[in-house]
């Protein structure tokens, strides 16, 4: 399932996928796959993404 909230949060901070990937320490492709729903990150990676974007797990990954 696509994660549009993550994509919106990233673009609000004017970060490209590559820049976010470098901050977190993962590949650009992994960020792309998470946003497009092609990969389910572990809780550890979810937390790293949330810290980089300044949001909570609920904000980015909770299914409504």
């Amino acid at each position: 399932m696509e994660n549009n909230r993550m994509r919106e949060a990233r673009t609000k901070l004017h970060l490209s996928q590559g820049e976010l990937a470098r901050q977190i320490g993962v590949s650009r492709q992994t960020i792309n796959m998470i946003e497009n729903g092609g990969y389910n990150p572990t809780i550890e990676l979810c937390i790293r993404i949330c810290r980089a974007l300044g949001l909570t797990l609920n904000d980015l990954f909770w299914e409504e």
């Binding site: 993962v26 492709q29 990969y39 990676l45």
Partner: peptide
């Protein structure tokens, strides 16, 4: 530090 769980 680069650690990509998906790649691993």
């Amino acid at each position: 530090m680069f650690y990509d769980e998906r790649i691993e």
